[in-house]
Design a protein around this nucleic acid. Structure first.
Lengths: 156, 156
DNA sequence: TAATGTCAGTTCTGTTTTGGAACCTATTAT
DNA sequence: ATAATAGGTTCCAAAACAGAACTGACATTA
């Protein structure tokens, strides 16, 4: 399978990877969530090469995750802002961060903390079924897909 | 920044990428959630080259996501099974799939459906704060991190 | 006994992608 | 005039990847 073919797969995991599945894109998105919008700021913070950054921003724009908007004329300059689709990825992003904090320990003790803006308390992210409020786990869900009807088979 | 340095970063996104941030790992994990355990089965389903598959399985084992277990002697054969950390990634995986279904449309009409095992109904995944039950969005959360105290600054 | 098949890899070679650094263009500031 | 700023592009070397063949330990079939 080629990298460029991922987008056309029916599997949503493959499609997700076509958008955020490379070395840098999720880090760029992280910085967007931090409020970063400009080329040089991304480049300084990430240590990514300018060439690759240019590429990734283009592809994020093409995927509808970021949009490029002029913020001044003379000289014309653009910045990159999250679209609704980009903002909508934030919960998934939080779920990844939460898993990582729990299962991929840092070498030093530092860590990110997410606080609720309303209560000021640390949040405890959880992925639930909005219909029932029940947490989603590997054993509570069954998948149906054209390519693999028996997703429910033995797992783990 | 080098690929190998990601693991030592304090940022959990960088650490997450050190584990699942390459072209193939998330697809391997998907197949694990389908119940796939053996080398050749991964290879056939994914179309990954055997060399890269071998590499990824080793690194997933090193990260504690999969464990390698003998399933027969003579000839000695191993299979790859999800650890608790691997299973614990499932909710994040579902959050990614859900976002993708909503924002990265497939070319053909096929799609995956996740059903609750108890009710049989389609699930509607949502990332909430377990303390309050409130959905987590970009605007409801404030981040604190050593590298960027003002995460809460203007965003979007 | 010989040939064939299975499974889990390793080795080889050539293409793609990335990293690192310098360069380019328009414009404002000194 | 000179330097600085912002947002890129161009070049080359290094790393990662794809595709295919090969290995080794057995098991099965002829």
């Amino acid at each position: 399978m080629k990298w460029t073919e991922l987008r056309d797969q029916s599997c949503p995991v493959a499609r997700a990877l076509s958008v955020v599945g490379d070395r840098w894109t999720l880090l760029i998105l992280r910085d967007c969530y931090f409020g970063i919008r400009r080329f040089d700021h991304f480049q300084e913070r990430l240590g990514i090469t300018r060439h690759v950054l240019s590429d990734r921003l283009k592809s994020l724009e093409a995927s509808g995750i970021l949009r490029r908007e002029p913020y001044q004329q003379r000289p014309l300059r653009h910045e990159y802002r999250l679209t609704e689709a980009g903002k909508a990825f934030y919960p998934a992003f939080v779920a990844i961060v939460d898993w990582t904090e729990a299962h991929v320990p840092p070498k030093d003790g530092t860590s990110v903390r997410l606080l609720s803006k309303t209560s000021g308390e640390p949040i405890r992210p959880e992925v639930v079924d909005a219909n029932t409020g029940e947490p989603i786990t590997l054993t509570s869900v069954r998948g149906i897909t054209p390519s693999m009807p028996e997703w429910d088979a033995k797992r783990g």
